[in-house]
Design a protein around this nucleic acid. Sequence first.
DNA 1: GGCGACTATATAAATCGCTTATATAGTCGG
DNA 2: CCGACTATATAAGCGATTTATATAGTCGCC
Lengths: 109, 109
Amino acid sequence: MITPLTYTILLALADGDRHGYGIIKEIEARLGPAAAPSTGALYLALQRMENEGLVTESPALPGPDEDARRRYYRITRRGREAVRTESARLAALVETARQKKLLPRRADA
Amino acid sequence: MITPLTYTILLALADGDRHGYGIIKEIEARLGPAAAPSTGALYLALQRMENEGLVTESPALPGPDEDARRRYYRITRRGREAVRTESARLAALVETARQKKLLPRRADA
DNA sequence: GGCGACTATATAAATCGCTTATATAGTCGG
DNA sequence: CCGACTATATAAGCGATTTATATAGTCGCC
């Protein structure tokens, strides 16, 4: 089981490479500011995830009109497997929550 | 944000009081053996959750044909709020995963 | 008659990830 | 000139889970 932060980061990287700060912005945009990790949590998590083989630093360098400090990350095959597996697990939890009437279901009570 | 284990336990208690071991069995039945916590994790989590006001020990005693060692737990109003809020958060994550094509959507590619 | 598996609760030690705080540094707007 | 934003990074501390262990009754199997 991957951690919630690991999952959120993998989800942010699922549709394209991003740099650390850009990951935070992607999470804010998709899930709201409350879901976004602090910089401390993010960069630590990226290091750990690189060691675990879930992401790699991409060789791409920042373009001339981008901030030169940026470091880009890419999801690996293992990372994609992990985010798929975890997504299925969460979908099962949400389905259980619906069965127990904790969430509204479309066209239902 | 509640922890994954806290969420799973609250979900198991959402539709009725259960004793500790019964919570494990409920999780196994709904989500598979891999999702079930160890006894160590469970009883520690129940203590913590009782301190946080998410569950209370119910005054109900085991019936004559039940194991006398059982201790029953009930979800509180705060616990129910917490599990609802977290369910909505997870549903948003799953929806994002679907948008990023990490999960099949019913009648869709 | 003993052994393993199941039911049932509980605690201790250790690990590990996150939180909070801090550091550096350039750019932009008021 | 100061605060906010972009951007990455590390340190110290906290807290939850993992793993291991303990106790104890019942049941089925060999």
